[in-house]
Design a protein around this nucleic acid. Structure first.
Length: 282
DNA sequence: AGCCTATGCGAAC
DNA sequence: TTCGCCTAGGCTG
């Protein structure tokens, strides 16, 4: 499920299964049928991700732009014996159609699945803030936005034009790890605090790409280290505050809080992440 | 089996 | 501000 690391893994999987292969492209559900017909029988160049966006490239500089939204899934099945009939609402199905290992992939529930030009792809990329997963990212662009904004840092971190690829889990967790209250205004951050946040996101998200999970607890707070039961839910990762409202903070034992922030549930520990007080009024 | 909720975001109201 | 997307895992019964 989709924060930036998920999209990066997906791009890698699609590239491994389909780059250089001729594909059968279809839309069993029908909503992408006309564009699928235009791509059917074309060679796939590969796939790339940027923030939470995914682009699957086909010969002739044609791209399928995919955004999974909250509930979308894109499952890649590499090297299968046979391709099963589509199950459910499959918006886009890719199947290898040339000699070689058989692979297929099904896209369901996405908010966006559209055939676009290179120019349109570039426009999407231009609207995104730096992505911690990209080595060519320029964090200064994000810092300029944050340093000039009175909006809460918990809001800015979720704004894809400020930083791309960060979602509700990484937001909650990185703020906890830096003892920062989600409502702290962006412009009150010191530069070195932002740099520390960014560097941490780079590490946490890269780990997410490697493992396919979001694990944010430090070694001393793992279930083994603390002698507590591991987290069991659909995310699997070990976290400090995300979806732990009402439970005890792994660090201080206080109760984890939750409140809506920019339309999403925000989680924090009131003791570890105190409300910011401006120096000027102290 | 059915209900609820969710790592997102654009469109409609 | 609310809705749609129409998936999928966990929980309830």
């Amino acid at each position: 499920m989709p924060e930036g690391h998920t999209l990066r893994r997906l791009a890698d999987e699609l590239t491994a299964a389909f780059a250089g292969r001729v594909l059968h492209v279809a839309s069993p559900q029908g909503r992408f049928a006309a564009d699928a017909a235009l791509l059917d029988g074309s060679a796939c160049v590969g796939a790339e991700s940027a923030g939470k966006h995914l682009f699957v490239e086909f010969a002739g500089e044609r791209f399928v732009h995919v955004h999974l939204g909250l509930i979308g899934t894109f499952l890649v099945h590499g090297d299968v014996a046979e391709v099963p009939a589509p199950v459910g609402e499959v918006r886009l199905r890719l199947v290898t159609a040339d000699p070689g290992p058989t692979a297929y992939a099904d896209l369901r529930g996405a908010t966006r699945c559209a055939l676009v030009t290179a120019a349109a792809r570039d426009e999407v990329l231009a609207g995104l803030g730096p992505d911690p997963l990209r080595t060519d990212a320029d964090p200064e662009r994000a810092w300029r936005r944050i340093a000039a904004s009175s909006r809460p840092i918990g809001d800015l971190l979720m704004d894809q034009s400020v930083i791309s690829g960060v979602g509700n889990v990484f937001r909650a967790e990185v703020l906890f790890r830096h003892r920062m209250h989600p409502l702290r205004p962006g412009r009150t951050l010191r530069r070195r605090q932002f740099v520390a946040l960014w560097d941490d996101l780079v590490e946490l998200m890269a780990a997410g790409v490697r493992t396919g999970r979001i694990d944010t607890v430090r070694p001393e707070h793992t279930p083994e280290a603390m002698g507590r039961p591991p987290r069991v839910d659909d995310h699997g990762g070990e976290v400090y505050v995300y979806r732990r409202a009402g439970q005890a903070c792994h660090v201080c034992g206080g109760r984890v809080r939750t409140e809506m922030l920019v339309g999403r549930n925000s989680f924090w520990c009131a003791r570890c992440q105190p409300v910011f007080r401006s120096r000027a009024v102290q």
